[in-house]
Design a protein around this nucleic acid. Structure first.
Lengths: 82, 82
DNA sequence: TTTACATATCGGGAAAAGTCGATATATTTG
DNA sequence: CAAATATATCGACTTTTCCCGATATGTAAA
């Protein structure tokens, strides 16, 4: 999922909202993942709590997009601390 | 454990072998970890299979030391691919 | 070559993570 | 407000991971 969210336009061409500035909505990710709605929703909320993605609620949809700084931070942490 | 192995001299002052060029032996790590011998042994072998540490058998002892290049590779992987 | 010591492997029980269906909540539409 | 849609949460079950004791293997010392 995290890799998919790197290029939303490519990986979620079916999303019909105006642009991807807020990322991709849960339903799209669910369809592509082939897991149930509840599983995907929980998974996304875990990723969010961990700081790897951010969510934006727009109407009835929740959009998720990557938080690149978290990945950079993790990369640096592994490089230096670990 | 991986952090401990960054500075063997500091973290394993009890090791009485001549130097740390091959790393630290299982018993030392076990004592510090507070886990059983079998658990630590298995854990170290997993880390080795994953490439994060290397082992050297010297007599009845097995020494483990970090493989820094694996950490760099992981760091770069997270930075670029993920 | 028997005994002692260090480490590795094996089998199993406990804990955690993954996944689901059912249901709750929130939002939009009629 | 009622129905429809999207997402979130809950409880239960399954799978995986963690960790242990027992035992095997490999090496050194007596």
């Amino acid at each position: 999922m995290l890799e998919w969210l790197k290029e939303p336009e490519l990986n979620f061409p079916d999303q019909i909202t105006a642009g991807f500035e807020h990322g991709v909505c849960v339903g799209q990710i669910q369809a592509k993942a082939g897991l149930t709605q509840s599983t995907v929703s929980e998974y996304l909320s875990i990723l969010q709590r961990a700081g790897f993605i951010e969510s934006t609620r727009v109407g009835q949809w929740t959009y998720y997009k990557r938080n690149e700084s978290a990945f950079e931070a993790l990369s640096k942490l592994i490089e230096s601390n670990l």
